[in-house]
């Protein structure tokens, strides 16, 4: 069944979000706007509006939401989570939308690349490489950071490009392997059940 209607709306999008543990709340959103009124990002940049993002997701504007840079500029201050009268954790819903965007393999903006780099780096050294993270995130826009980098350099604060690996990095990679194997198996089982 193709959930997309002629307007390109995907009415099942919110269900996809709700499948993620952090996104369960989306089915109960009243769109009251308390999240937006308490949002510390919106206070300085009203292009970001959590209520609007969640409402667009509920309406089925799947591609618009998933490709939007806006879903990546929640600063995770958790103010909305504290104040939501329905207790549905709007900030966590944004995280669930990010979950879906990453599953879709989006790499088109800074926010999504910032997110992807964390796991990559942890699998390499066990920690986040703070020297490479800005490069990976900003790509050629890294040049905007040159004055800041010079300042940090003279303070002796530039993070090392080749940091030491943690003791037991192999264990981290092994844990990841175990998890990925399990996910594959779960997906296969789900497939089988779908067929029978």
């Amino acid at each position: 069944m193709d959930p997309n209607d002629e307007k390109g709306l995907d009415y099942h999008f919110y269900k996809e979000i709700a499948k993620h543990p952090k996104g369960e709340g989306i089915t109960k959103c009243l769109s009251c706007g308390t999240c937006s009124s308490t949002c510390q990002v919106l206070a300085v940049n009203n292009n970001y509006n959590p209520r609007k993002i969640i409402q667009k997701a509920v309406l089925g504007l799947r591609e618009e939401v998933l490709n939007s840079e806006m879903i990546w500029i929640c600063a995770r201050c958790n103010s909305c989570i504290e104040k939501c009268p329905k207790g549905i954790r709007p900030g966590d819903i944004i995280t669930a939308i990010r979950n879906v965007a990453l599953e879709e393999g989006k790499t088109s903006n800074k926010g999504v690349r910032h997110s992807i780099y964390f796991k990559k780096s942890i699998l390499q050294t066990g920690k986040v490489n703070e020297a490479i993270l800005p490069l990976y995130t900003l790509r050629f826009k890294i040049f905007s950071q040159v004055p800041q980098a010079i300042k940090m350099f003279f303070k002796g604060k530039l993070p090392p490009i080749f940091p030491k690996k943690i003791k037991g990095i192999k264990d981290i990679r092994k844990l990841n392997q175990l998890i990925q194997n399990r996910k594959l198996k779960q997906a296969k089982d789900l497939n089988k059940r779908g067929q029978s």
């Binding site: 990546w72 500029i73 600063a75 103010s79 800074k110 910032h114």
Partner: peptide, 10 residues
């Protein structure tokens, strides 16, 4: 909030 978590994203 100091804004740190979106320093690279925006």
């Amino acid at each position: 909030c100091c804004g740190f978590h979106i320093l690279l994203a925006d």
